Amino acid sequence: MGADQHISWHEAAASALEWWADAGVDTLVEDELRDWFAAPAPPVRPLAVTSAPPANLPPDTLDAFLTWRMGEAVPEASWNAGRVPVVAQKIRR
């Protein structure tokens, strides 16, 4: 009733290969041989890690940190955005 249930797998595979050939794919993997069982190359590490100099690190106490955080020494001071002050509250036990 309507649809042909006869599927020729050989014709379907040939059609798919013809489509890939028309798309410009002419090799299965690469032009050069590859040893698929070889261990992968180690990841490339950066030569140096940059960090802020010790003079620009935030202060150690909470009050000094909050003052520094709203000052002009923070990295975000040059951004075009407003900063929201944090209000420190003492924890009562």
Rank of each mutant, 00 (worst) to 15 (best):
T27W: 02
P53V: 03
W36R: 09
T50W: 04
W68M: 01
L28V: 13
S8M: 00
A55Y: 02
A81K: 08
L57R: 15
G71K: 01
S8T: 02
T27L: 02
W20E: 11
R93V: 06
S78A: 14
A77C: 02
P40Y: 06
P75H: 02
W79T: 13
N56A: 15
Q5T: 10
A23R: 04
R45K: 05
G24I: 03
L66R: 00
G71Q: 00
A88T: 02
W19V: 15
A41S: 14
D31N: 08
H6R: 12
A73S: 10
W79H: 13
P46D: 03
R34F: 12
A88Q: 01
F65W: 04
E30R: 13
S15C: 01
W19R: 15
D60T: 07
A3Y: 07
H6I: 12
A81I: 12
L33Q: 07
L57A: 14
T61F: 05
E30A: 13
G71H: 05
F37T: 14
P54F: 02
D63S: 06
N56H: 11
D31F: 01
A81T: 05
T27F: 03
Q89Y: 11
A16R: 03
G82T: 11
V44Y: 06
A23T: 03
D63M: 00
L33E: 08
Q5F: 04
W79Q: 13
A55V: 06
A21C: 03
Q89A: 08
A3T: 10
A12R: 08
D60C: 04
M1V: 09
V29N: 06
M70E: 10
V87C: 11
G71T: 03
M70A: 14
N56F: 10
A23S: 10
A64S: 05
P75Y: 00
A73Q: 12
V49N: 01
N80P: 13
R34P: 06
M1C: 00
G71W: 00
D22E: 10
A12I: 09
